[in-house]
Design a binder for these strands. Structure first.
Length: 971
RNA sequence: GGGCGGUUAGCUCAGUUGGUAGAGCGCCACGUUUACACCGUGGAUGUCGGGAGUUCGAGCCUCUCACCGCCCACCA
């Protein structure tokens, strides 16, 4: 006997253990012979934190698909695993070290630090996988992979080497986004551009040798508005501290104002006067003559636009900052930005001699933080009188500083200002790989759901830039590249391979290094010849291989053959670039086939006010907490019900609570069935039942099964959820069980047997349809009620109903009848409430001039009607009795003799309201049917439908007006 | 600057080929019944953001305006 309420916390752990013990989630478990494969790879959670709402949503949806397909008999694999999450994990461990008061990673050393990170990985992985299990995720845990495990690392090495050999990976000195906090390069995608309050300063760059020119400014009509003699060129900048690295000043070729001085030199007005550098004034299409002064300082090593200008114009790029902050010791988070540094010049045009001659960063600025240096530079220039000035309100001359919003790049993890830096990095030629990846979406081999996301995909892919994949971190896949004594690069899957290649290379080439290598080999051994690249790969590099690396690639495993390509990838839209696009590229390149045919993009989870959840806002809802309080099933059902496409998911706790109540409702329905000895009957054939009520519920169940299936096929999780919700609560509980009570309470006999068998049969159907959404409670009920020992399988492997209209068709007549009964009861209830008939009072029901069919129906449903509508007697008459209230159900009229009980005014109001509604409807229908255009142009069926509606409405109106008349006579 | 999405009941949102609006929660009233108060029964509530157009007919298609989100982008 079931308890009165369902206790998820007592059930879920046990049920999950049962599934695991039975190997229920193993690839192919429960599959029919010759089943087709169905595979989903999990977006691997990072080994940093714990399950958040996004995980809960995404993994619920995947689990729904996987459980559904498994029940449909597919050979299902849900491939689990975790991601090493380079920066994120390193960050967590470094923070932990600091909190423990432990030495930092540099003091610790690379090896010890990495060992420490592995400990973190073990701890975190166990935790997050455990949380996925609490959610009910039915992954094949025996196949759990980690992006840095042996097999996946082998895949990474092979991919790197092959792409390198194909010329699709290369090393180069380029301007990259440098994160001064983590001291590593990051990719464009890891940069967030944020508008912040900034300043723009205007400075005078004196012309070399005190030269002067006539500066003329004109308005749009060509009238001269300013004419003066100048010995400088005015530039505007938001980053004065980079002036020391300027390589030129650029103006637009069409800019008449600066024509006289193009090609001449000007002086950077910072630093000791004897050491100031002269730079050329050049032309380039980049400067906008209408912005600022129209002249732009070009700092190729610290600005992406300037870098492009410098490349075009052969202008040298001077890097001003170190890639290591050094020991500053003040500990402030934003103070760890790269410091202004020793002279480092990166420019192809400059000779060694020239570089040495330049003292880029004066002593007084060395070691300063970027932002400190900025203040100093501004102060120094202003003091020297080289700032462009303006007059303030009091008539004083002051330096011109415009406060203006500027877009500033921040590291998405570090939240510090990113510094463009000229460094040596590894890049993937993304453009080449993107072409087939775009083609595959264009021709439909891979589809986005909702489809609109392909626009986002294309937009990014069409403008794709080289992908910077090297990271100056320790945690990750170390790049398989080795450098020879002359910095020659040798890429191979292991050191031995690189060394072989290197020895071969050096011995085959006459030159200074041949003898050196020979000498080394003889006296020291091969270990000293090569140095391995220190860097590791971007974490997304290994993620990009996930759909095939987890299946065993590069080994030609059976799983790889069977499950690749996979079926669906489910993720959030903010991951399309980072991950989806790159999986497409790598999958197509290495497997020659797309990694999945469908990309399902789910909504983003927000709080109930629509705010993004974040720790700082304190509005984070913890899914584990919800599971503790309401059960995993309730959380899952909420996720499914809210998963409407293309939107944000706003989660309110009341919703979860509501679905917990739903679980209880189901529980009690099963409890009721159990109490009434509703049990499965061997050989029960739903198409052979007789009672209209039973035929009806079987038809409704079949309709629901079709709806749920159809919705899932279209990834409309919310539609699927609401179909099963409505069926269980509003159809099975509210009507079927209530209408069945007279039979179940009545005398034994064929009808009672049939009703019991039907109740049990439909209950099982409900459990099956509900299982993907609420796996725990459904499995628990499946295993506890009604001779559970005789079940052929656990519910997780039960057979999903084949969609097909047979049962629905068989039930169509029964549906007409039961719908009629439901309407009759509802109408009586409605009349009772509106006329304030006391709930406890039993009243009489008179069927007026009922035809044969209606008499029959009423007869069959009499007991139920009496019970549910609180009716004392049911009688027949040819006219509405004096003083009776009338109720209309379809074409039938009923009377409720309520003389004395009735509140005449209330009844008049009720009828008046109903009549108003009718008049409105009739008016609309008449107008429509009088419309020539409608009659001639609308489809026949539509016209016919409107005609029928009009006839019905008119008949109803006639009956109503009769009733109103009688009411008048009464009063 | 470019692109995408949104604006429907008090709240959160459905509404799939155009046939005059739905759910959950909340609210109000009443609670008799061999499951369930995490319940039952009934009820109220919308010029579907504004305007124009196409159409016999528009929440749905077109244009336009307003407001709100998000993404991408180099204006010093």
């Amino acid at each position: 006997m079931l308890d009165k309420t369902y206790a998820p916390d007592e059930v879920e752990g046990r049920i999950y253990a049962d599934w695991e013990k039975a190997g229920a989630f193993a690839a192919g478990a429960g599959a029919q012979a010759g089943a087709r494969p169905y595979a989903i790879v999990i977006p691997p959670p990072n080994v940093t934190g714990s399950l958040h709402m996004g995980h809960a949503l995404n993994n619920t949806l995947q689990d729904i698909l996987v459980r559904w397909k498994r029940m449909q008999g597919f050979d299902v694999l849900w491939q689990p695993g975790t991601d090493h999450a380079g920066i994120a994990t390193q960050m967590v461990v470094e923070r932990e070290l600091a909190e423990e008061g432990n030495v930092d990673r540099r003091t610790m050393g690379r090896e010890a630090f990495i060992e420490r990170v592995w400990q973190q990985k073990e701890k975190s992985e166990a935790s997050i996988l455990g949380q996925l299990k609490r959610l009910g995720a039915s992954c094949d845990w025996s196949r759990t992979r980690f992006t840095m495990d042996e097999g996946l690392s082998a895949a990474v090495l092979k991919v790197f080497v092959e792409l390198y050999r194909a010329g699709l990976i290369y090393r180069g000195k380029r301007l990259v986004n440098w994160d001064p906090q983590f001291e590593t390069a990051i990719s464009d995608l890891e940069v967030e551009n944020v508008e912040v309050d900034g300043h723009m300063w205007h400075f005078k760059y004196p012309l070399a040798g005190g030269e002067t020119y006539e500066y003329v400014e004109k308005d749009d009509d060509g009238n001269v508005t300013l004419r003066e003699t100048r010995d400088y060129i005015s530039i505007a900048t938001t980053r004065p501290e980079t002036m020391l690295g300027d390589g030129a000043v650029a103006v637009h070729p069409s800019d008449e104002r600066y024509k006289p001085i193009v090609g001449k030199l000007c002086e950077i007005p910072v630093g000791p006067k004897q050491h100031r550098r002269l730079i050329p004034i050049i032309t380039d299409p980049y400067p906008d003559p209408d912005f600022g002064s129209g002249a732009v300082k070009i700092t190729g090593a610290h600005d992406f636009n300037d870098y492009a200008v410098a490349k075009r114009g052969g202008i040298p790029c001077y890097r001003l900052m170190d890639t290591r902050a050094g020991m500053r010791g003040d500990g402030a988070p934003y103070a760890q930005a790269a410091a202004l540094a020793q002279t480092i010049v990166e420019g192809a045009q400059m000779s060694e001699a020239e570089i040495d001659a330049i003292n880029l960063v004066p002593d007084e600025y060395r070691g300063l933080d970027r932002f400190e240096a900025r203040e100093r530079v501004v102060a120094d220039i202003t003091a020297e009188g080289l700032a462009v000035t303006t007059t303030d309100e009091e008539g004083n001359e002051v330096a011109l500083v415009e406060a203006r919003p500027i877009m500033q790049p921040f590291g998405d993890r570090s939240h510090v200002v990113i510094e463009p830096m000229l460094t040596d990095q590894w890049f993937v030629d993304a453009e080449a790989l993107a072409k087939p990846a775009m083609e595959a979406v264009r021709d439909g081999r891979t589809k986005f759901v909702p489809a609109a996301w392909d626009k986002t995909y294309f937009n990014w892919m069409e403008n794709i830039e080289p992908w910077c994949i090297s990271r100056q971190l320790w945690w990750g896949h170390r790049i398989p590249a080795w450098y020879g004594p002359d910095d020659e690069i040798f890429v191979a899957e292991d050191e031995e391979g690189a060394l072989d290649a290197a020895i071969q290379h050096y011995l085959a080439h006459e030159g200074p290094w041949k003898a050196w290598v020979e000498e080394r080999l003889e006296n020291y051994g091969p270990g000293d010849i090569l140095t391995r690249d220190e860097d590791v790969l971007d974490t997304w590099f290994s993620s990009a291989l996930w759909p095939f690396s987890t299946l065993g690639w590069p080994e030609g495993t059976a799983e790889l053959t069977r499950y690749y390509k996979t079926d669906v990838l489910s993720t959030a839209h903010d991951i399309i670039f980072f991950w989806v696009a790159r999986m497409m590229m790598m999958g197509l390149h290495f497997m020659d086939e797309v990694p999945f045919h469908t990309v399902y993009i789910h909504a983003l989870v927000r709080d109930e006010k629509g705010q993004k959840m974040s720790k700082s806002k304190g509005n984070v809802i913890d899914p584990l907490d919800l599971i503790d309080r309401f059960g995993a099933d309730a959380l899952r059902f909420t996720m499914a019900a809210l998963a409407a496409q293309g939107r944000d998911v706003k989660i309110a706790e009341s919703r979860v609570q509501g679905y917990r109540n739903f679980a209880t409702k189901l529980w009690n329905a099963c409890r009721f069935a159990e109490m009434n000895h509703c049990a499965r009957v061997d050989g029960f054939d739903p198409s052979l039942v007789n009672l209209p009520l039973n035929r009806w519920i079987i038809g409704e169940a079949a309709t629901t099964a079709a709806q749920v299936t159809e919705a899932l096929e279209a990834y409309r999780f919310n539609d699927a959820a609401s179909a099963i919700y409505r069926f269980i609560w509003n159809t099975y509980c509210d009507w079927f069980l209530e209408l069945a009570k007279p039979v179940l309470n009545g005398p034994d006999g064929a009808g009672k047997d049939e009703t019991r068998a039907t109740a049990a049969h439909v209950r099982d159907e409900m459990l099956i349809l509900l299982h993907p959404f609420m796996p725990f409670i459904s499995e628990e009920l499946w295993g506890r009620v009604d001779n559970a020992a005789a079940r052929e399988t656990m519910l997780v492997h039960a057979v999903w109903p084949e969609p097909g209209g047979v049962l629905t068709e068989l039930a169509s007549e029964a549906k007409t009848e039961i719908d009629w009964v439901i309407e009759l009861i509802s109408t009586i209830r409605s009349v009772r409430t509106e006329l304030n008939v006391p709930a406890g009072a039993k009243i009489d029901l008179v069927a007026v001039s009922a035809d044969e069919a209606s008499r029959h129906r009423l007869d069959r449903a009499e007991e139920a009607v009496m019970r549910l509508a609180r009716i004392e007697t049911v009688t027949h008459a040819n006219a509405v009795p004096e003083g009776a209230v009338q109720a209309v159900v379809g074409t039938d009229t009923f009377a409720l003799p309520l003389a004395g009980v009735v509140d005449v005014a209330a009844e008049r109001a009720r009828l008046g309201k109903e009549s108003d509604k009718l008049e409105k409807e009739i008016g609309g229908l008449e107008r429509k049917l009088a419309n020539e255009g409608f009659l001639s142009k609308a489809p026949e069926a539509v016209v016919e439908e409107q005609r029928e509606r009009l006839v019905e409405a008119q008949a109803m109106r006639a009956r109503l007006s009769d009733a109103i008349e009688r009411l008048s006579a009464l009063s």
